[in-house]
């Protein structure tokens, strides 16, 4: 036996043990999170997925007979389609506004601020300290008939009657969503821009590129993962939002999430509610896949 072979024989058990130890560490580190996600998300989701192919057996009851009718009903129903169009459309618009409005702030924080960066990020985060529901109610005092905006407009003589469309309308829902989700977009974009080496911007400028072109050719492509993440995150949470359309949406308030809630709570039709939920989930996945695919196609 050669010296190398002897050494290898001795090393194998040591290496094997090290790998086992490493696996154990990984299991201990990841295990709690996996347990929580599996227990609180995957198992209930799998249960709902199975139920979405079953028949309703009366309020809150499920009859375990396979059917596709919950999905065909969800996809064919013109009312659901209209509501889905409004939900996803408004969600996409709010996500787009958050990303576009978030870019200048994130750019300024990342590349222009030197000393106040931490403070700026704190100010972005501090708006998230308030309860979501409290912020929604706060919009009453800003957008309402006797709110800050209408009072100011009337006092300035710009309008004679309060602008009713500001509250209890899709406009109000959009404003509330942008207010709530803009900080998240700024954080995601800032995080993404912090990976861009400042010397790339300097190089671009040295080569005679203007600020706008530097942004569109350097910053924008390199921060695109952050933009995709911010858009997807905002789109999913707004399109699936239940409470904002109910509180601020007026008579055009119903969202797809409200339909899901009605199916579960008012009708007790778990299979139908589950099917609509999984149609929504599929759309969210498709949006995510398309956006990440587009990002890759650009060679970024």
């Amino acid at each position: 036996m050669t010296a190398t072979a002897v050494a290898r024989e001795r090393l194998v058990p040591i290496g094997f043990s090290a790998r086992r130890r490493q696996r154990l560490v990984v299991a201990l580190l990841v295990g709690p999170a996996v347990l929580v996600v599996a227990g609180a998300l995957l198992v209930p989701a799998a249960n709902l997925f199975v139920q979405s192919f079953m028949e309703s057996g009366g309020y809150g009851q499920v009859t375990y007979h396979f059917t596709l009718s919950n999905y065909t009903d969800a996809l064919r129903d013109p009312v659901y389609r209209t509501v889905a169009w409004h939900s996803f459309g408004l969600g996409a618009l709010s996500a787009l506004i958050c990303v576009v409005a978030g870019y200048p702030a994130a750019y300024y924080i990342t590349f222009k601020l030197r000393r106040g960066r931490t403070l700026a990020l704190f100010l972005v985060v501090v708006s998230l300290f308030t309860s979501y529901l409290v912020r929604l109610y706060a919009w009453d005092t800003i957008l309402g008939s006797h709110g800050v905006i209408n009072t100011a407009l009337i006092h300035l003589g710009i309008v004679k009657e309060p602008l009713l469309f500001l509250l209890f309308s899709r406009t109000a829902v959009l404003i509330a969503w942008v207010n709530v989700f803009l900080p998240y977009s700024i954080l995601m974009l800032t995080s993404s821009m912090q990976n861009i080496r400042p010397d790339l911007l300097e190089n671009a400028r040295d080569l005679g590129t203007g600020p706008l072109r530097t942004f569109t050719r350097v910053v924008l492509p390199l921060s695109m993962p952050g933009a995709v993440a911010a858009f997807t995150y905002t789109f999913i949470l707004t399109s699936g939002d239940y409470i904002t359309p109910a509180l601020l949406g007026g008579t055009s308030s119903t969202s797809l999430a409200n339909i899901v809630s009605d199916e579960f709570v008012a009708l007790g039709n778990r299979p139908a509610g589950a099917a609509i939920s999984f149609v929504m989930l599929t759309i969210f996945f498709l949006v995510y896949l398309v956006l990440t695919r587009l990002e890759k196609l650009r060679g970024i």
Partner: peptide, 23 residues
């Protein structure tokens, strides 16, 4: 009625808020 209404009131508690705020 809905066509002439301002909103669908989600709850009776919320209705009280809406009266109190003059909406």
């Amino acid at each position: 009625l809905k066509k002439n209404a301002r909103l669908i009131v989600p709850s009776y508690g919320n209705m009280a808020d809406l009266f109190a705020s003059g909406e």
